[in-house]
């Protein structure tokens, strides 16, 4: 009797499990299909695409579209490929992520461990900045960048992104440090450590997981930004996203779909890499905290 019940349970379990896997597989295929189309078509000569079958594997494999997208494709008026703009994006993202993360951490530290009268009000204001749509600040930002002489430069973009990211990075760090034991800060004070020493020696070394979260968030947002990039840059300082748009919209001659696909993948690659590489550390960081020593 018991044995049969158990058998039934096992059989039902297996069936349900199979269904779950089938469903998951279906969704995975559904979500991966666009990527498949992009990868497959970026490896075909243009004639094959013109013949119409977007889903078919290439008959002649070629990496020509990738090389073209990277270094020779027509972007606007120059046949430079995406390479200089990729570098622009790197030059913009790295300092912007670094500054906004560091300042967010400092803000969080002050707002939780060196609380002053009105600290919560200041935090609410910073939180509010997360909800302001980008479009609203476009014209004031343009004016300020102009006054600072930073209009149309990568430095100007770094500044805008770093400031705009502060609301979020402060929110992340503030909530993380809120749970950080204040007794550690007090112990360090008695040990004679100053404001920055406590921050650098005590808080930062314990902030791994939240730093990774913030970096992923900031990197993805800043790299993918199009609005600020297109508004505050000129031909020399355009980030990758704007260049990709120009690549696709260049109206000279034929539409090189295979090159466009390759370019789009190139533009998405860094965020993917950041997520895959640091995502692992992120999970590891969470696990390290979860296991009691």
């Amino acid at each position: 009797m018991t044995a049969t019940t158990q058998q039934t349970a096992v059989r039902t379990g297996a069936l349900v499990r199979a269904l779950i896997y089938a469903l998951l597989l279906l969704f995975a295929v559904y979500y991966l299909l666009p990527l498949y189309v992009m990868v497959v078509n970026s490896l075909k000569p243009l004639e094959e695409i013109r013949q119409g079958n977007m889903l078919a594997l290439p008959r002649t494999w070629t990496i020509e579209p990738w090389l073209s997208a990277w270094s020779t494709a027509q972007i606007g008026v120059q046949p430079t490929g995406l390479k200089p703009y990729f570098l622009n994006s790197i030059q913009m993202v790295v300092p912007a992520v670094f500054t906004s993360t560091l300042l967010g951490a400092l803000n969080g530290y002050v707002l939780t461990k060196w609380r002053f009268r009105g600290a919560d009000f200041v935090f609410t204001l910073m939180l509010l900045s997360c909800f302001i749509p980008f479009q609203i600040v476009l014209i004031p930002s343009a004016r300020i960048l102009g006054l600072l002489g930073l209009g149309g430069t990568v430095t100007g973009l770094v500044l805008i992104h770093a400031i705009y990211g502060l609301g979020f990075t402060t929110l992340f760090f503030r909530n993380y440090y809120e749970a950080f034991p204040s007794e550690l800060v007090r112990a360090a004070m008695i040990d004679g450590a100053g404001f920055f020493q406590i921050f650098r020696r005590i808080l930062l070394p314990s902030s791994g997981p939240i730093i990774v979260v913030t970096v992923i968030w900031q990197f993805t947002n800043i790299w993918n930004d199009f609005l600020f990039g297109s508004s505050f840059s000129n031909a020399d300082s355009q980030p990758m996203t704007v260049a990709l748009n120009n690549l696709v919209n260049s109206s000279t001659g034929v539409k090189e779909y295979n090159v466009h696909f390759a370019g789009a993948i190139l533009a998405a690659l860094p965020t993917l890499v950041v997520y895959i590489v640091s995502g692992r550390y992120f999970v590891r960081g969470l696990m390290a905290g979860a296991v009691k020593g």
Binding site: P181, E183, L184, A187, A188, R201
Partner: peptide, 8 residues
């Protein structure tokens, strides 16, 4: 301190 406050 009560929680020992050792630097982790």
């Amino acid at each position: 301190f009560q929680s020992y406050a050792l630097y982790p």
